[in-house]
Design a protein around this nucleic acid. Structure first.
Lengths: 203, 203
DNA sequence: CTCAAGTTCCACCAAGTGGTGGAACTTGAA
DNA sequence: TTCAAGTTCCACCACTTGGTGGAACTTGAG
């Protein structure tokens, strides 16, 4: 058994899957606090109560572990599926709910914030994954904006719906970073709600 | 000569000051790309063409070097002094100019973005310095908003001027992070201008 | 029960980490 | 020129890094 690439989180063995999940959870906390480069496999392994080679056995290498963490994070923080043509009010409520839920898990938020900032460097291993993640978010917001423009609820300011959606996402992440650095000074869900409603021409 | 704490960038010796400046510049690039934890003193020294112990001689330890880098960055990116009671239009123009200038130095922007995200963890050594940096920014924006409210140019939405200023700063930084991750998709100076004008009730 | 597949840890590796001490050299004021 | 102060590098320290190989053990389908 030279190298199990182990793409999925599940394989036939119960104990293996359990430790795999445990490792991903601890890795998420560690990456959140010190970033990808600043976190050692041994530090993660120590928190998970296993040897660091166990960790390498399950994920192959450090980058693969990071990607597994990101994938797992997305499953965690997006509990519901967004339907195809969702009503703008429902979308706002959904995002605000996610933001509120994030407030009770600052580690998770920090994870993506730190990685996004690190991934500003073009050589970061998680850059493509994070770009893709953003693209999913912006595309659903953009299609909502496009729908609102078609029914005349919001004016065309010369910017493409994708551009406007990008601004919304950027603002959301900026709010989270700022809030982590100055705890309690900002009401992230409320500000996000205002930003979304403005983009959608609501109230 | 056991330990020169070397608080300032200048001391009587020309050669020393030159290498000190060179080290800070290279350190800024390195911290920007890999964050504080992910950057090694030897990597910085290699880029600067000196031994890593030279670097320790000048700055004492890694944290002190980081703080020197932040201080130097602020001097770089804020070329002009903001007067006490600046006109809102002038402030907008000034900030937009800074944002536009930042576009030609993506490394510098990434530096503060990465550090701000890392510093979301309460144990980060640069956390106080970065909080202070934000406080300087928000206080001038907040006082401008307060002035605009007093003259009735912008309404009181129930949020304190400091809160509104924090939202502006958070948005600015979010735009920069997003733009680093998706180059060319966003016009950061233009979006910042719109954000500032909305906060100040202009146009 | 059998036994291949999967799991876990230990020992080890070469390379890199921040930091120290000291010797050799340069700078610049007197 | 003198000479203390400052600078630079080299050798070294104990420790950590990501990764490998293999031995001992556990799991679960037949």
């Amino acid at each position: 058994m030279p190298k199990p690439p182990t793409p999925s989180l599940t394989s036939g063995y119960a104990t293996g899957n359990a430790t795999k999940r445990l490792i991903v959870a601890r890795a998420a906390e560690a990456f959140a606090q010190k970033g990808f480069y600043g976190t050692s496999l041994r530090a993660i392994a120590r928190e998970a109560g296993v040897d660091h080679s166990t960790l390498l056995h399950h994920f192959g290498n450090k980058v693969a572990l990071l990607l597994a963490v990101i994938e797992w994070h997305d499953l965690q923080s997006t509990p519901m599926e967004w339907p195809e043509n969702i009503a703008p009010e429902t979308l706002v409520d959904g995002f605000v709910a996610v933001a509120r839920q994030n407030e009770s898990a600052p580690g998770l938020v920090n994870l993506l914030s730190t990685l996004s900032a690190e991934a500003g460097a073009s050589t970061h291993p998680a850059r493509p994954a994070l770009q893709q993640r953003h693209r999913v978010l912006t595309s659903i917001i953009a299609s909502t904006i496009r729908g609102r423009r078609e029914c005349g609820a919001v004016g065309d300011d010369g910017l493409s719906p994708e551009h406007c959606a990008a601004v919304v996402v950027a603002t959301w992440e900026g709010l989270q970073v700022y809030s982590a650095l100055h705890p309690g000074e900002l009401d992230v869900p409320a500000q996000l709600e205002q930003t979304l409603k403005r983009a959608f021409g609501l109230s």
